[in-house]
C-alpha cells in the first residue's frame, strides 16, 4: 500500500466517522479542527482505520501522532 493510498483511507475514514468534508482534511489537520473528534471517538476512529489498513498500531505511538500527516506516517511505517 502506498503512502497516498493510506492517506486516502485515513481521510475517508475521518470524513465518514465525523460526517466531515473530506476536502477540508489535510495532513496538518488536528483533532480540534474536526467537530466531534474527542478522545472516545478518536479511539473508535483508530479501530476503523486499523480494520481498513489491516494492521494493529502501537497505542503509545498513536498518542504521539500530532496531526493527520503523522498518523499516515505511522501507518506507513508499521506496514513496512
Amino acid at each position: 500500500m502506498t503512502r497516498d493510498e493510506i492517506a486516502n483511507i485515513v481521510k475517508t475514514t475521518i470524513a465518514e466517522e465525523f460526517s466531515y468534508d473530506k476536502e477540508k482534511i489535510s495532513e496538518q489537520t488536528v483533532a480540534a479542527d474536526v467537530p466531534g473528534w474527542d478522545s472516545f471517538s478518536h479511539g473508535v476512529l483508530i479501530m476503523q482505520i486499523e480494520s481498513e489498513v489491516k494492521v494493529e498500531l502501537p497505542v503509545d505511538k498513536i498518542m504521539e501522532a500530532a496531526n493527520v500527516g503523522e498518523l499516515i506516517d505511522l501507518i506507513n511505517t508499521e506496514l513496512k
Binding site: 478522545s39 478518536h42 479511539g43 473508535v44 483508530i46 497505542v59 498513536i62 498518542m63
Partner: peptide, 9 residues
C-alpha cells in the same frame, strides 16, 4: 489500564 488504550483495545 489507560482509558485511551481501553477505547482502542
Amino acid at each position: 489500564m489507560d482509558n485511551f488504550e481501553w477505547v482502542m483495545r
